[in-house]
């Protein structure tokens, strides 16, 4: 069991702990984790794709040694898939069993009213915990030692689903009509929600969360991230490739390369035993960082200029 209290004692400790797990975070991110833990508030993380939103939740779960429960959102996600569902098959099976043993059950019952009463007892059993299939949200509430709950890409879900989330986010409980309200067993889970901002998240949801915006990192931070993730890469190449990516982000592109792309590129270059960037090499590996043919064509013209600028700066 990780010493959570020790880790979360201060922002600096959180930062250091994240770094030991190869997640380089800014003060802002560390502060968010610190406050989320101490105030028991969910964090809504926004930012361009590939800046480590999901990774933050994953690393937190590793750090606290808590299980990560993940709910991937998509259009049409509803409570049956997110909160709970009844085990229909089991219910059906038990009804069959009941049907066969109906005589035994009703044996000795006098009159219709008593028979119905006896059957009612069974009816309640069918909608009890035994037959409840917990889905991620309910599962998260029932973890004895707490857990990290990641609700990924909440902007992809329907508007109605957001409203479903409100109860669990503000009170850490869900209401199941047949059973009642289920509250978090012990420690409320650490909740992370991520959003790519494809649509506006409702105010009600935002109000219940800490709002963390993760932008693209600056050059220095990105270099440290690359260093942590791909430690084998020579320092000069690392500087060059980060500078190159930073330049690319300035251009008008359909999809700007994110940190994950930088990491992929660093791995690619390492695999190719590169020591320094040159235009030809960049051109050959451009498809690792740019995902649209249109972008690749646009950037192609600039490659030589940018590469020269970067290699010149190193000298």
């Amino acid at each position: 069991m990780a010493d959570i209290d020790n880790i979360t004692a201060s922002v600096e400790r959180i930062k250091a702990a994240f770094e030991s797990h190869n997640y380089i975070c800014s003060d802002q991110i560390a502060t968010a984790v610190y406050l989320a833990y101490h105030l028991h508030k969910p964090i809504l993380i926004e930012g361009p794709p590939g800046v480590g939103k999901t990774e933050l939740a994953k690393t937190t779960s590793e750090l606290f040694e808590l299980p990560l429960i993940r709910l991937q959102c998509y259009e049409g996600l509803d409570e049956a898939k997110a909160i709970y569902e009844w085990k229909y098959g089991k219910q059906l099976l038990y009804t069959q069993v009941l049907k066969e043993t109906l005589d035994e059950v009703l044996q000795g019952a006098k009159g219709f009213a008593e028979s119905v009463n006896r059957l009612h007892e069974f009816g309640d059993i069918f909608f009890s915990e035994e037959f409840l299939e917990p889905r991620p949200l309910l599962k998260a509430l029932r973890q004895e030692d707490g857990c990290v709950l990641l609700i990924d890409e909440v902007d992809k879900s329907d508007h109605e689903f957001e409203s479903l989330l409100l109860e669990i986010l503000s009170d850490f409980q869900v209401s199941i009509p047949e059973i009642g309200t289920v509250k978090a067993v012990a420690e409320p889970p650490m909740v992370f929600l991520t959003s790519n901002n494809t649509r506006e998240i409702s105010d009600a949801l935002k109000r219940r969360c800490l709002h963390l915006y993760i932008p693209f990192p600056d050059q220095e931070l990105e270099q440290r991230i690359i260093h942590a993730r791909v430690p084998e890469i020579p320092p000069e190449l690392q500087r060059q490739l980060v500078a190159f990516i930073q330049e690319l982000r300035e251009l008008d592109l359909k999809k700007v390369p994110a940190i994950s792309e930088t990491i992929d590129w660093a791995r690619t270059l390492l695999l190719l035993h590169t020591e320094s960037l040159d235009p030809k090499l960049v051109r050959d590996t451009l498809n690792v960082i740019l995902k649209f043919q249109e972008d690749i064509i646009n950037v192609d013209a600039e490659i030589t200029a940018i590469t020269n600028k970067i290699t010149a700066a190193g000298r």
Binding site: D27, Q28, T31, R207, H211
Partner: peptide, 13 residues
């Protein structure tokens, strides 16, 4: 700085 970072998580959305 800490106060600013903290409040920026709670107030602006």
């Amino acid at each position: 700085a800490f106060l600013k970072r903290s409040l920026s998580l709670v107030l602006p959305k």
